[in-house]
Design a protein around this nucleic acid. Structure first.
Length: 604
RNA sequence: GCGCCUGUAGCUCAGUGGAUUAGAGCACCUGACUACGGAUCAGGGUGUCGGGAGUUCGAAUCUCUCCAGGCGCGCCA
């Protein structure tokens, strides 16, 4: 309904401008046109509302209801408004309620039935003869030689969903896995590797990732306790950075081992992402320093090269530096992140030519990104009309409200967590089959529990406002009622059930007239037509939980419709009208779940 | 100490400056199956929106301040 909303806004703006000119207040227009029309705060008020008359009453020093009445008179002379609106009504102190005509809503429904994106428009930059804008989404980002844990789960799921939403809108999306494949920790890892495998680098092909995690711990322990080991580790970093063949081979082995494990997780989560780790930016680090120095932003402090940040202080109240080059000459993550910003905004072939970069990391890195973005702005590395966003998210907590850990106090491995979700989903399913005396094949059982288990984990995470900490509970996410993945999936199963039993031949090719009278039908129609506005709001604010809220409301609205309105038993034309609503609900649901990265089922 | 974030019903949370009544879900109680999958639907009631002040015609929402909690704070990422 976005197009109608825009058209209404345009026509209201014309009337507003005319009114302002008449009252000699034209200069207020730019301010007042913002949010001129909004969605109704409550369903019973209509489709949209306009609150401008209360603001005008202060400017004109007149009664707001009188202003509203004049405003409506003017609008009623506008042919387009008359075409779209059933009536314009003054309410309360001077609000204008806008109710759209039934035939306009039906027309929109018909358009959405035909539209593969269920009414979501392509972004305005999507024009012929030009590539659409490119958005870089930087998410997931596990570290080499460490196993993925729940912390990576949120980044991965949220980043994937944001990527899918931009893809639907027609942007070019570059999903980047900025994995931790470089840095000082490799000194100790490679040194340990060499100690244990006595320079025979071929043997370590046999190492499995769980060994590698132990291996990380043991080398960290040695690094912390043995000064001789520490010294050799530092030398190893230098060797690696200078491209020593043996060190590079060891590094590659470590990376490949980890990569296998990551890919397994991404496969089970159905995540597509391009690996481009920190090491990718190594050739560009030097020029970051040089350019900052050239622009007089670089300050040497205690041997390190820094840029001091505005508005941020350290424990002593002194300005906080962003360290770009350590006193030993090494680079750190700020350097890499700056090089990455430069590269991503640069034109091809030496860059990605992005127009927006989105970072999905935990909230703990907010300060870091604020610093990096500030320096990038100072250095003029963020081009005009381009945008960087940090999308922070809170901790994953256990049911006790503390950071999620195993009973032994260890970090929970993502692999184990996903396995457990699927295992519980299967247990529930088997129990249900038994109670209902149903028989299903092993293949059905495996697939259904996989879709429900993984879907539940994803949905539980995405349906929360990402800013707040999130309480992880298998029982809640797998619950069959409430705002959960199983409830949504069940709604789809009900629609599939109708389609299976429907013996009416599809006559959609003929132009049929749709007719609605029941309150539940109109509620469903209005809910279906809000889909595009939800997607647009997520594109702006990067809050996938709004899609989940919408989906849950859509399912509730559909289930009421399903409960109170017979479909298959009706006479032909009513039946067709109602089946069309089922079709569009199904399409919107499937598309939305796809945007959340959740698979769907016909039966469950 | 400083910075960022959070504080809304018993619990978990939505809430995009606007309408006498601030919304969901869970949990609890009562109804509705000769049905298109009842994994559903209908009804039932809770709130000093952490406290205080300010801006405004109007504040859960914006500003300030205080309180509580989380995270971060110089060469790890």
């Amino acid at each position: 309904m976005l197009i109608i909303f825009q058209e209404l806004t345009k026509n209201f703006e014309q009337s507003l401008l005319a009114s302002l000119i008449k009252n000699d207040k034209k200069e207020e227009f730019e301010d007042l046109r913002k949010n001129l029309i909004t969605q109704s705060s409550k369903e019973e008020f209509g489709d949209y509302q306009c609150n401008i008359c209360l603001v005008l009453s202060k400017i004109y020093k007149k009664n707001p209801r009188d202003i509203a009445s004049d405003f409506i008179k003017k609008l009623n002379k506008n042919k387009r408004i008359l075409d779209l609106c059933k009536d314009l009504e003054i309410a309360g102190p001077g609000f204008i309620n806008i109710k759209l005509k039934d035939e306009i809503l039906i027309k929109e429904i018909k358009l959405n039935i035909k539209c593969p994106r269920a009414g979501v428009p392509l972004s305005s930059n999507n024009v012929k003869d030009r590539l659409p804008d490119k958005v870089v989404v930087d998410f997931s980002s596990p570290n080499i030689a460490k196993e993925m844990h729940v912390g990576h789960l949120r980044s991965t799921i949220i980043g994937d969903s944001i990527s899918r939403i931009f893809e639907l809108r027609g942007y070019q999306v570059l999903r980047i896995n900025h994995i931790g494949d470089w840095g000082t920790q490799f000194g100790m890892l490679i040194t340990q590797l060499k100690d244990l495998y006595a320079n025979n680098l071929k043997e370590i092909d046999q190492i499995k990732i769980s060994d590698l995690v132990e291996f990380y711990k043991s080398s960290k322990k040695r690094f912390d306790n043995e000064s001789e080991f520490q010294e050799r580790s530092r030398e190893e970093v230098v060797k690696l950075q200078s491209g020593n063949t043996e060190s590079t081979a060891a590094w590659n082995l470590l990376c490949n081992q980890s990569r296998k494990e990551f890919d397994e997780i991404y496969k089970s989560l159905n995540i597509k992402i391009k690996e481009r780790g920190e090491s990718f930016y190594n050739p560009f680090l030097k020029s970051v320093i040089e350019e900052l120095d050239y622009k007089n932003l670089l300050v040497e402090d205690q041997g390190a090269k820094c840029v001091f940040l505005d508005g941020m202080t350290n424990k002593e109240g002194k300005p906080l530096p962003l360290i770009i080059q350590k006193k030993d000459g090494g680079f750190n993550y700020a350097t890499t992140d700056l090089a990455a910003i430069k590269y991503r905004f640069n034109k091809a072939p030496d860059g990605d030519d992005a127009s927006r970069i989105i970072y999905v990391t935990d909230h703990g890195q907010s300060n870091h990104f604020a610093g990096v973005f500030q320096v990038a702005k100072k250095a003029n590395w963020i081009p005009e009309n381009c945008q960087v966003d940090h999308v922070p998210f809170g901790l994953v907590q256990g049911i006790d409200g503390k950071k999620l850990k195993t009973r032994e106090g260890d970090t929970i491995r993502l692999k184990d967590l996903l396995f457990e979700a699927v295992r519980r989903a299967k247990e529930d399913l088997l129990e249900r089959l038994k109670n209902e005396n149903r028989y299903e094949t092993e293949k059905f059982i495996l697939n259904t529990s996989r879709v429900i288990g993984i879907g539940a984990v994803k949905y539980a995470d995405l349906s929360q406002n990402r800013i707040t900490n999130y309480q992880f509970s298998f029982d809640k996410m797998l619950s069959l009622n409430g705002n959960t993945a199983p409830y949504l999936l069940y709604t789809l199963v009900r629609i599939s059930g109708i389609n299976r039993k429907n013996d009416l031949i599809d006559e959609s090719k003929h132009s049929i007239s749709l007719n609605y009278e029941h309150e539940c039908e109109w509620r469903l129609i209005r809910k279906l037509l809000k889909f595009d506005e939800v997607i647009i709001s997520i594109e702006k604010d990067l809050m996938p939980n709004r899609l989940c809220n919408y989906l849950f409301e859509l399912c509730q609205t559909y289930n009421r419709f399903y409960d109170q309105v017979p479909i298959l038993k009706e006479e032909k034309y009513k039946k067709i009208s109602r089946l069309k609503l089922c079709d569009l609900t199904e399409k919107t649901l499937k598309l939305s779940l796809e945007l959340l990265g959740i698979e769907t089922l016909e039966r469950m």
